[in-house]
Amino acid sequence: MVRRFVAALALLALSLPVQGGAGADIETLSWLSGQWLRVDGDKRWEEHYMRPAGGVIVGMSRSVRPGRPPSVEFIRIAPGADGRLTYHAHPLGQAPAGFPLVEQGPGLAVFANPAHDFPQRITYRLMGDELTATIEGPDGDAGMRRASWTWRRAGPAP
């Protein structure tokens, strides 16, 4: 009876999100690795993340829509100056921004930077073969803004 209780408690502890912070291992985010795709007619959204290697995950995002220039963003997830895993976003035509990992769990990573204009929070969640990214934060006088994208796994990580 006691062993069952301890085993159930251990499983519960493993399923709960944990706070990100200094010393978080890049391998705990390996579930992001892969090729992710969303297609809606002639619109296409892609995310690509390489497997962790050398303490870093390298990624890129691209969206292609007719009549608009493609949107491209380069991403690097690696320890920041303080040792915390940080999502470094490099959107084309914009200044790079860093978002330290503040929460993580199985299939969950939350990065936040309250000093950034928008977004201030980036959440990645894996559910089965779908990856969802949500960005949120203040949007001037309009209050809070939130946007989400969901991709399906299209292939393994390079």
Rank of each mutant, 00 (worst) to 15 (best):
R62D: 00
W45S: 11
L14M: 09
R153I: 08
R84K: 09
G93Q: 04
V102W: 00
P79S: 04
G128M: 08
M144A: 14
R65F: 02
G107W: 05
E136A: 12
E46M: 14
L131N: 09
D82F: 01
Q94P: 07
W31G: 05
R146I: 11
A157F: 01
L32C: 11
R44K: 13
P79H: 05
S63Y: 05
G143V: 10
S148L: 00
D25I: 04
A157Y: 03
E130S: 15
A157G: 03
G137W: 08
W36N: 02
M127A: 15
S71M: 05
G155Q: 10
P100S: 00
E103G: 08
L126F: 08
F111G: 00
P106G: 06
P119A: 00
G93S: 03
P158H: 00
A95R: 14
T150C: 08
P106H: 07
V6H: 09
A7Q: 12
A133H: 03
G155T: 09
G98C: 09
F118L: 01
P100E: 02
G20Q: 06
S30K: 14
R84T: 12
V6P: 08
R44A: 07
E73G: 05
Y87E: 07
G105I: 05
V110P: 05
I26C: 04
V110I: 12
R76G: 10
F5T: 11
P91Y: 09
P158N: 00
W149V: 11
P138G: 15
D139F: 14
R68Q: 15
T134E: 06
D82T: 06
I57A: 09
I57S: 11
P91C: 04
D117N: 15
G21F: 00
